[in-house]
Amino acid sequence: MSLGPYPAPEHVAGARGPAGETDADVIILALDRAEETIAAIASARAQTGIARHVWITDQGSKPENLARLAAAVEGAPDATLVRLDRNWGVAGGRNRATALGRGRVVFALDNDAEFRDPDTLARAVRAMDAEPDIAAIACRILVFDSGADDLSSWGYPQGLLPRSAESFDVATFVGAGHAIRRRDFERTGGYDDALFFAWEEFDFALRAINAGQRIRYRGDIAVRHKVSGEHRFAWSGTRWFHFVRNRLYIGLKYGLAPASLLPRFLAYQVKGARNGVLAQGLRAGPAALGLWRAFRPAPGTESLYRLTPAARDYLARNDAAHRGGLGRRVRAEILAALPGASGAKAG
């Protein structure tokens, strides 16, 4: 796992890069859904009070959709559309998009989301500047049409949901809208490409916390999310496979013995069997072991994969204390993958 260097992607449209220094980079991954992506780009370019550049990274859109994206940024001095050689998933795509910029803060916006306010980005940067021990800001995710909390994107203990408008430290963040301090992203090794999608934010957060940083949920910094069928759990696809594989793989990476993960693995199989995807869950176990055996930390990050006492205390206070015992925690994780249920979005 490494932040690069990556081969230069193909420049498609817009500026070759920012004209001057920037405080923040906004990254948007694109894969078809042209109409929603164009709206996300417009929302990012409308952010005020901050020097920023918008990077749109396409991972395999159909030619007609790529052409629409190109037209949306043609001649734009503050936006760049590039195309990667293939679909690297959420984790790999964000790594490559992040590597394009130089802003001290990287704000990742889903291609079906928009900033709630014109100064959302500026407030996120100010919040990170005010507290140097924050590695990432988890935004409040709202349903685009209603403004209510998007329960399918609530990635935190259920007991904290009534406090969704407040701010508190957390153990992860939700991908639909979040800000990361570039310094922390680079020194912890970024995302793990092997995850592709599901749990990549949690994996990064563990390393940041182990490095002595915090993840801060900010209910006053929000994005509006267009919840659609594409974000619902698809039992017939491979999402359950990635969900189970990645969670087991992350446990192994951070020092858990394979036997200790057996209760979690079995709980996942029960849920998978009930929904007709037992084969996906069963394949996930050996696949997780394979990823773990092949895993090599980025140089200089080796120590971040053994949680310190301070990191364990942070996780106990800010996450486990709100979740209950193992059975309840595993149940919450499973519910996270289900349509319309509270929990972390997988990617």
Rank of each mutant, 00 (worst) to 15 (best):
H11C: 04
G20S: 12
I27P: 00
L31P: 07
E35V: 15
I41P: 00
A46F: 11
H53S: 13
V54R: 01
Q59G: 02
G60N: 06
G60Q: 12
L69C: 03
A70G: 11
E74F: 05
P77E: 08
V82R: 00
N87T: 08
R102K: 14
G103N: 06
R104Q: 12
V106A: 04
D110I: 12
D110M: 09
A113P: 06
D117G: 07
L121T: 09
A127H: 14
I134P: 03
D149P: 11
W154S: 03
G155V: 00
G155N: 03
P157T: 12
G159V: 14
P162R: 00
S164V: 13
D169C: 00
V174A: 08
G175S: 11
I180W: 07
T188W: 08
G189F: 06
A194Y: 01
F202M: 10
D203G: 13
A205I: 12
A205L: 13
I209T: 00
Q213H: 12
I215W: 03
I215M: 05
Y217F: 02
D220F: 00
K226S: 09
W235H: 11
S236K: 12
G237P: 05
T238D: 15
T238V: 13
T238S: 13
L248H: 09
L266T: 13
G272F: 13
A273K: 15
V277M: 13
R283T: 10
P297W: 10
A298L: 09
E302I: 07
A311Q: 14
Y314R: 07
L315S: 02
R317K: 08
A321T: 04
A321W: 09
G327F: 07
R329M: 11
E333Y: 14
L335H: 06
A337N: 11
